[in-house]
Design a protein around this nucleic acid. Structure first.
Lengths: 232, 232
DNA sequence: TCGGAAGCTTGATCTAGATCAAGCGAAGCG
DNA sequence: CGCTTCGCTTGATCTAGATCAAGCTTCCGA
């Protein structure tokens, strides 16, 4: 394992307040792999063999239907643990994971990881915090799917990426339309139309770069209720 | 705190492998309340003041839109911790919680709970496991919302409640239609129609009791892909 | 330089499911 | 008891968003 990888680990949100000695101990059991975009790390139904940590790059969780249909549930980046839930519970994965970019992964054997979690309270607490924040991501998504229209979900996604700024913001979509559409629970065509719809709220879309001319206005639009006819 | 409550706690999935002494210590900081159905335990946006544990009864997490629109995200029962994620991270709740039945709740002051989690590795691990299993619930829901039709979601819900049986099964819907429809991401009317649709797959619906005459057949139906026209 | 294949948008339909609107049976109440 | 209310179903309609189907760039490899 490279020194740089160890440093990345140490600085990650998951490990940053864990003693270096402990981090090194955990990492020592694992192996680092550089893998190309498109690699499947595991598939729905598999029993977890490793705890997958992203050192660099990006991975998406995907759910597949019987047929060719698939949808991305969420993307994760450096410092994220992929589907820790399955590893911790030692239960089959409910989703698959695929690299959305060339990535460096740290693979820690599942049993070894669980042992570390059991014996190293600091690690257990770090996992707890990360799992909690991932839980919140999913809650946000369920709320969006159930309560928002397609353009509102797109707007919400843009706002998330823009962060907590005031007036103008520029965001770069890291994914191609088809994948992003899946993540947002709509077809690529609908994403395109949603983006078109948002133009009237000051969202300009040039290739993969998106300019939000008035964050506040967009935020207002996305908060709106999905109004029933009677109230219109 | 009653002896019975302590026993319930000790037997819960969260605490069952934690030393009684420790459980008692945690509970000692908390207070038990018997609250009527409909009580709001907290609302979206609130800063967590307590860790809410269900000793008996049932609670639902609900997300609200701007207007009167609301949807139930999930129900929880005895032994479940409500939205531990927010308490652990000390961040505002993303959802509200309301009792779906008269319930006995254990309220542990948030800071006190966090302190116990930090100092009691067994508790941290237990929380980790529960949060992991709750994470999986949400993943299942997102998959359903994105990939399944309304009747399939209803069928899936029935199958979950039926458990892992073979041929015939009877389940009782604990909720009224409107609430259940929200949990399943559809309108009450659609739920009604979905139930009607499922009749042809051996699902009989008599008031709040549902009979599945052939679990296997239903399971097959629910696994089906949402087929595009071309394949029909 | 020239196809050709992706990726993206736009237009034309189609449909699952929402909304609106009755009806209907069972439970609660005067 | 009769009346009302509430929960549920069923029917009629409407609509958001999916699907089908072209075009249009942009990029890439020969």
């Amino acid at each position: 394992m490279r020194q740089a990888d160890l440093q990345t680990l140490q600085q990650s949100s998951l490990f940053h307040d864990i003693a270096p000695r402990v981090v090194a101990g955990i990492a020592a059991d694992g192996l680092v792999q550089a893998l190309p975009k498109g690699t499947f790390l595991f598939a729905e139904g598999d029993q977890p063999e490793f705890c997958h940590m992203i050192l660099g790059g990006r991975a998406g969780l995907i759910a597949q239907d019987g047929a060719d249909r698939e949808t991305t549930i969420e993307f994760f980046g450096p410092g994220d643990m992929l589907v820790g839930a399955a590893v911790i519970l030692d239960m089959p994965y409910l989703v698959s994971a695929r690299l959305a970019a060339d990535s460096r992964m740290l693979l820690i054997p599942a049993e070894s990881f669980r042992r570390h979690v059991r014996h190293e309270p600091a690690l257990a607490n770090a996992c707890l915090r990360q799992l909690a924040s991932h839980w919140r991501l999913l809650i946000g998504q369920i709320k969006d799917l159930k309560l928002k229209t397609a353009p509102q979900r797109v707007g919400g996604y843009l706002l998330e990426k823009a962060g907590d700024v005031g007036g103008r913001a520029v965001v770069t979509l890291g994914e191609q339309r088809k994948v992003l559409a899946g993540r947002l629970g709509m077809s690529p065509e609908s994403l395109s139309r949603a983006l078109a719809e948002l133009r009237s709220f000051g969202v300009g879309c040039h290739g993969r770069d998106v300019v939000i001319s008035d964050v506040k206005q967009l935020r207002e639009y996305c908060k709106q209720s999905k109004v029933p006819r009677a109230n219109a």
